[in-house]
Each structure stands twice: as C-alpha cells, then as structure tokens.
Simulated scan of single mutants.
Amino acid sequence: MKRIIQNLLLMVQFLTRIPVNLNLPCEKEDFKRGAIFLPVVGFIIGAIQWGIYELFIRILPLEPTIVIILLAGIIVTGALHLDGVGDTCDGFFAFKGNDRIIEIMKDSRIGSYACISVIFDLLFKYALFSSIAPSFPIGIIVVPIISRFTTVFIITIGKNAKKTGSGNLFVENVGKLQLFISFLLTTGILILMMNAIHVIILLFAGVVFTAIFNEFSKSKIGGITGDILGANNELVEILTLILIAVILR
C-alpha cells in the first residue's frame, strides 16, 4: 500500500508543480505502476481549476474567471503540455527528415508554428470553457481526466522515437494491465460526475483520436516522444471540450 501511494505521489511530483517534497522511489518500474494514476493527476488538476472557478465566478464576470482558470492550469502543470504541443508543431511542420524533426523538437527556442499552436490552443480553451462552464462547471474536472487517460493509452500502444527522453520512462514500459486499471479508475470517477453514455462517447472519441495521432507521429518520426505526449494531451482536451459543448446544446 505504501508503494502504491508513493507511485501516485511520484506522478504528482513528476507531472505537476504541486509541492511534493519527498524523496520518492523513481525507478522505471515505479513509473510503470504510477502510470495508472495519470487520470487521478488529471482529476487533481481539474479540481484545483474547478475550485478556482467556483471562487472567482462569484466576484468576477465569466471571461476573466476563465482566464484565471487557464492560468491556474498552466501554473499547476508548469506549462508542460503546452510546451509539448508547441515543440511538436515546430517539428512536424518543418517539412524536414525524421532526425531533423526530432532535433527541432528538442530545441529550446520557440518557432512560428509553436507560437501559433499555443495561441490557438488557449483561444480554443477560452472559448469552449466560456461556453460550457456556466451550465456544466464540473466539465472543468472531466476534461483533464480524459486527456490523461488517453496519455496512458498512447504510451501503451506507442513506441519510442528516440533512445532517451522523459517519454521513455513510460513508452514501451506501460502495459495492458496498467491501461486496464487506469480505464477502471477513469470510468469510475467520470460516472460519478456525468451521464454514463456521455462518458462512453467522450472516452471513445479520445481513444480514436489518440490512435490516429499515434499513427501520424509514427509516420513522421517513427514513434512518439514526451513532447508528443504533451501535444496529444492538449489536443484531446480541446476535442473533449468541443464534444461537451455539442452535448450541452
């Protein structure tokens, strides 16, 4: 039981800026076991954003409140996933060979495509959260849970595009058992918050999109990297928000 809690805390420590000032075991096996908790990490991030929304919507108009929850998400995650989508777009749209794409993705400098992708990512989230939050505020929690589950899915089906990198702690390390346990956790949490049919629709859409994105990444660089995990997370969040907005109409 102690090791399970440590693996959960390791995921919080690794994927967020939430202060977990503990010296935790961080062998590859710990990341493998900890992967089941990615949707729980999504729940924690979403719950923080939801709490901030419920606090500020009482004293501020909707629009600045949405800006604050977006900023809160960036602070809590350290912009980890936004950085991933930016680096991925810089690499994928460079129209270079596989090795050159990976080199561009590793470059700490921001290119035009990264800048554009981050701007549109935040614009989509701003517009969609503004649309759904007044009638379905719990959706603020639902979205990061689903996106983190699809991360577990892609690291289960994907393969490494390079020999080293943060993504290698998960990719080709996490198996079907971890995916299944993560699925049970995800559905268990989501069914407590929304209609079961809607849960199935959102999870199915996220998984299908992720499978397609995995194949696209494989065609570009032969596999996936940590940046691609971040990009997939962001894109699935936007897709989930769009579907929730459609459901609520």
Rank of each mutant, 00 (worst) to 15 (best):
A245Y: 09
I145F: 07
L169V: 10
G226L: 08
L243N: 01
Q178W: 13
L243I: 14
T210K: 05
R3M: 02
I181L: 15
F31V: 00
I221F: 09
V152Y: 03
F153I: 11
L239E: 01
V142F: 04
N160H: 05
S131A: 15
K28I: 11
I200W: 09
M1F: 08
L192H: 12
G46C: 06
K218C: 02
D227K: 03
V152E: 04
I242P: 06
E234D: 11
I4E: 03
D99P: 05
I224Y: 08
D30I: 06
L229V: 13
Y53C: 10
I5D: 02
E215C: 08
N173F: 00
T151Y: 10
H81M: 09
L123G: 05
G158T: 01
T225N: 06
I154V: 14
V142N: 04
F170T: 02
L203K: 08
Q6R: 13
V246D: 04
N23W: 13
A79F: 11
K176D: 11
D83Y: 10
Y126P: 01
I45M: 05
T240D: 03
G111H: 11
L8D: 02
I132L: 11
G73N: 02
A47D: 07
A47H: 01
R148E: 01
G46A: 07
L192R: 14
I45E: 00
R3S: 05
V171C: 11
I59S: 09
L22A: 11
L122P: 04
R58T: 15
A133P: 00
G97R: 13
D87M: 02
A47I: 12
F213W: 10
E237C: 08
T88F: 09
M194N: 05
F93L: 14
T77Q: 09
L235K: 01
L203A: 08
V236C: 04
K220H: 00
G158K: 02
R33T: 05
R100G: 07
I18V: 09
Y126W: 12
I59E: 00
D30E: 10
I36K: 11
L239D: 00
G111N: 12
I69E: 00
I221A: 01
I197S: 14
L192M: 13
L243A: 07
R249D: 11
L123W: 07
K163C: 09
L80T: 07
S219R: 14
G42N: 05
K28S: 10
F204G: 07
T164C: 00
I146C: 04
L243W: 06
I191Y: 15
G158A: 13
T65S: 13
K218H: 15
C115P: 01
T88Q: 00
L122K: 10
K2M: 13
M194T: 12
T240K: 08
L9M: 06
N23D: 15
T210F: 01
V246G: 03
K2Q: 14
L248V: 09
